[in-house]
Design a protein around this nucleic acid. Structure first.
Length: 492
RNA sequence: GAGCCAGUAGCUCAGCCGGUAGAGCAUCGGACUUUUAAUCCGGUGGCCGAGGGUUCGAACCCCUCCUGGCUCACCA
């Protein structure tokens, strides 16, 4: 506490005085509660004033003082535990002179243990009629104002603990996050998938095209990358004989930050043998809509003012059709390389002119169509050149058996029938190396694994943070990550 | 990485055309035994993000930097 201001100093002095003059214990850890706020509320909410007068059960509770309204010889406080907020009534006549004067010295933010019986106040608010209390943890820093709360975004992210204390919606969002992920796991488990963990530190950062973070292992004197995707390891597990695997964990990408990008983000990847990408479309729509139903109680959600209906089945478009019908790009431009180049340059899209038709189609789709896909919509038939790990389509080898899922104009999932031909895979890796896209080294071991034989399979990655943004109506990815990455900065 | 916007008391915010810093809440003291942003009376509290410049004089104008937000780029 270098920046001790007068409010902090005041509280330190007050605490010292309480310990020396009033016999208050120093950060005690012996108090035990027997009732949570939510349990207390459930137990007594429905009962009337007179009924509660008959209740003699003493409830031991804990919480942080969030508000105090004090009169001469009585006072009300609101205190908060993990399950909710409750009012408590302190009375000098009940507590005695000394305990009451100790109570008067408590501050907003202090954590106390208290015991008492239920009462309904004159205004009908369920409260604890306090018989006794104990200061458990002194709070030395003042909490933000009760009415406006904590608004400063910088402080909210840097001092999330304060944000969580005083902003109920934030707490709610993160509780929802936990519930969504827990439902997701339950869904996967009940469909025969096993959860696995694969390396976060990888000698070759494969499975996606993104800049990796570099780190170093001293004892082995070996450079390692933080993974950008678990994909190649999960598929090795299909080779090994697991037929349904998934992993929910962090990926790290050394790219820019935005409302949709945090350098470390959570992704679920799963792989299913003897299935193709069309199976995964059905699987995905059922999974997401059922999680929405379980967690939010509805399949119709509102994201930033837009209503989105998640009920199945979801619309499907080829990339070309979507770009023509939703993006308004003339079909002949999507089908002719030279026209596409001219069109892109005219619109100021970032192209060099040496791109293939497939690469241009992706540019056109991303520039004109993506953010218009309120969805949910599956976009299929991606060009082969932009999909190095996907299986080629049987009828048309220029496209792959792949889809991306768009909701609210954002990519939520990416899935494809897996490429399991080791010779084709080697060629695609070689092509990437030549263009200096993706890893700087061929993952020979992955190709060797394919040479042993990987069953036909489909795999998918779902951006968990983005899914949670959607289901919690959060505008920024930082609102669904407890401690988003920020520059080193002084905390006020 | 680029552009735009913001940073004033613990918190939320005012502060006009450059004239020496304000409110509410919190805090401290006093009154008050059923309040709900309790009320009433009185007080304390500021490196105006940091550094430089212009000026008789800067929270305000100019420059640099720091931090954050939004948009764009790379990416999911």
């Amino acid at each position: 506490m270098e920046d001790i201001n007068r409010l902090v100093k005041q509280r330190i002095e007050k605490y010292d005085a309480m310990k020396t003059e009033m016999g208050v214990a120093h950060f005690p850890n012996t108090y035990r509660k027997d009732t949570d706020v939510s349990a207390f509320t459930e137990l007594y909410q429905a009962h009337g004033h007179d009924e509660l007068l008959e209740v003699k059960t003493l409830h031991h509770m804990t919480g942080r003082i969030m508000a105090m309204r004090s009169f001469g010889k009585a006072a009300f406080i609101h205190f908060q535990d993990a399950t909710g907020t409750l009012q408590a009534f302190f009375e000098k006549a009940k507590l005695g002179d000394e305990p009451y004067s100790l109570f008067k010295k408590l501050d907003i933010g202090d954590i106390i243990g208290l015991w008492g019986t239920p009462i309904k106040t004159r205004t009908g608010e369920l409260s604890v009629y306090v018989q006794g209390f104990e200061l458990l943890t002194k709070s030395f820093r003042p909490l933000p104002e009760k009415w406006h709360g904590l608004k400063d975004v910088d402080t909210r992210y840097r001092q999330r603990y304060v944000d969580l204390m005083v902003t109920p919606e934030v707490k709610q969002t993160f509780l929802l996050r936990t519930r969504i992920i827990s439902r997701l796991r339950a869904y996967m488990d009940s469909h025969g998938f096993i959860e696995v963990e694969t390396p976060m530190m990888q000698p070759i950062a494969g499975g996606a095209t993104a800049k990796p973070f570099l780190t170093h292992h001293n004892a082995l004197d070996m450079d390692l990358y933080l993974r950008i995707a678990p994909e190649l390891y999960l598929k090795r597990l299909l080779v090994g004989g697991f037929e349904r695997v998934y992993e929910i964990n962090r990926n790290f990408r050394n790219e820019g930050l935005s409302t949709r990008h945090n350098p470390e983000f959570t992704m679920m990847e799963f792989y299913r043998a003897y299935a193709d990408y069309t199976d995964l479309m059905r699987f995905t729509e059922d999974m997401v809509s059922s999680i929405a139903r379980d967690v939010l109680g509805t399949e119709v959600i509102t994201y930033q003012g837009t209503t989105i209906d998640l009920s199945t089945p979801w619309k499907r478009y080829t990339l070309k059709d979507a770009t023509v019908e939703v993006g308004g790009v003339p079909r002949e431009i999507m089908e002719n390389r030279d026209k596409a180049v001219a069109f892109c340059k005219e619109r100021g899209f970032d192209v060099t002119g040496s791109e293939t038709l497939g690469e241009l189609q992706l540019v056109l789709f991303e520039q004109t169509t993506e953010d218009k896909l309120t969805g949910p919509v599956f976009v299929t038939s991606y060009p082969t050149e932009v999909s190095p790990l996907s299986r080629k389509n049987n009828e048309d080898p220029s496209i792959v058996d792949r889809f991306e899922l768009f909701i609210a104009g954002r990519e939520i999932a990416n899935a494809f029938s897996e490429l399991n031909d080791p010779f084709d895979q080697r060629e695609r890796f070689a092509g990437q190396l030549e263009k200096k896209e993706g890893p700087s080294e061929m993952d020979e071991d992955y190709i060797r694994a394919l040479e042993y034989g990987m069953p036909p399979a489909a795999g998918e990655g779902i951006g968990i943070d983005r899914l949670i943004m959607l289901l919690t109506d959060s505008p920024s990815i930082r609102d669904v990550i407890l401690f988003p990455l920020l520059r080193k900065g002084e905390v006020s």
